[in-house]
Amino acid sequence: MIPHREIAPAKLNLALHVRGKRPDGRHDIETVFAFCVDGDRLSGEAADTLSLEVKGPFAGELGPSESNLVIRAAEALRDAAGVKQGAALVLDKRLPVASGLGGGSADAAAALRLLTSMWTIDPSHAQAVAPQLGSDVPACLLSLPARGEGAGDQLSPVDLSDLSGAAVLLVNPRVPLSTAEVFAGWDGEDRGPLTDWRHGRNDLEQAAIRQAPLVTTVLAWLSAQRGASFVRMSGSGATCFALFENDAQRDQSATAVPREWWHLATSLR
């Protein structure tokens, strides 16, 4: 039997403005999501029960499989759709954990897409379950350019067709950052709405730098690369990225990334 397969694309925040704190403890944000062609990979086969095997270069950084967001997504979808089937899932963890790339959210969203297909159920069940799993999961379920408002889960389409296929280099100094702790470190100042992502900012950058000063070094290194046309930190960090004028310039920079840092040379969807 051929297993079902899904990519969990790396998520980038081209800009992220924090506008205030919500009564539920989360934050009101305005962001523009973009997605890479590469990321974690999920496969699944029919089974009587739900199970998850995690492998790949960053498997060791995840907790027990039973607490993984992939299993939580699968259980929530099964309950919402009234499904009795199971699935044997395998997650190939290729993105760093707690890195601002939406890895756990992207994995959960990939599980929702994969199981919707495997169990032949209405996609509306996945759409209903996604917000319960995390603020980024609805955007990752879509995995297409979108503007996120509210806690990031109120989505509207954004035309980024001019960026489709754009060369991008992701760099992480191998420092995990807690999203909750970085948001807690936000200084509380509303610096204004997000209108044009190119002239926007990431309001979590300074909070991330206080916890991981190497973010400053990574941003400076990327900015110095030939052909880097746009450089920013993604999400709550510590991954930073640069858009390049062409693949050759991206690849040349990729070969020069310091050995102790993680990197991924990829393209935007």
Rank of each mutant, 00 (worst) to 15 (best):
H4G: 14
H4A: 14
P9Y: 01
L12D: 07
N13V: 08
A15F: 02
R19I: 02
K21G: 12
K21D: 12
K21A: 14
P23E: 12
D28W: 13
I29K: 08
I29H: 02
E30L: 07
V32L: 14
F33T: 08
A34P: 02
C36Y: 04
C36R: 02
G39V: 07
D40A: 09
R41P: 09
L42Y: 08
S43K: 11
A46G: 11
A46C: 13
A46K: 13
A47N: 05
T49F: 13
T49C: 11
L50Q: 09
L52C: 06
F58C: 01
A59P: 01
A59S: 12
G60M: 10
G60I: 11
E61V: 14
P64T: 10
E66Y: 03
S67I: 15
A74V: 06
L77K: 01
L77D: 06
R78F: 00
Q85S: 15
Q85T: 13
G86M: 07
A88Q: 15
L89R: 10
L89D: 13
L89K: 11
L91F: 01
K93S: 09
K93D: 12
L95M: 02
P96R: 13
V97E: 03
A98C: 14
S99M: 12
L101A: 01
L101V: 02
G102R: 01
G102V: 02
S105T: 07
A109H: 03
A110M: 06
L112G: 04
L115I: 04
T116C: 08
W119H: 05
I121D: 00
D122Y: 09
A128G: 13
A130G: 04
P131V: 08
G134H: 00
G134W: 04
S135Y: 05
S135G: 05
C140E: 08
L142H: 12
S143V: 02
L144G: 00
L144V: 11
P145N: 06
G150Y: 02
G150M: 08
D153G: 00
D153V: 05
D159C: 08
D159P: 06
D162N: 14
S164E: 14
N172W: 13
P173K: 07
V175W: 10
F183N: 09
A184S: 15
G185A: 10
W186E: 05
D190N: 15
R191A: 11
D196N: 13
H199I: 11
H199Q: 15
G200M: 03
L204W: 01
Q206I: 05
A208R: 05
R210I: 08
T216R: 15
L219G: 00
A220D: 04
A220F: 01
S223Y: 02
Q225L: 09
F230D: 07
V231W: 03
R232E: 01
G235E: 00
T239C: 07
T239A: 00
C240E: 03
F241K: 05
L243Q: 04
A248Y: 12
A248G: 03
P258C: 08
E260A: 12
W262P: 08
W262C: 09
H263E: 03
T266S: 09
S267C: 10
R269S: 15
R269T: 14
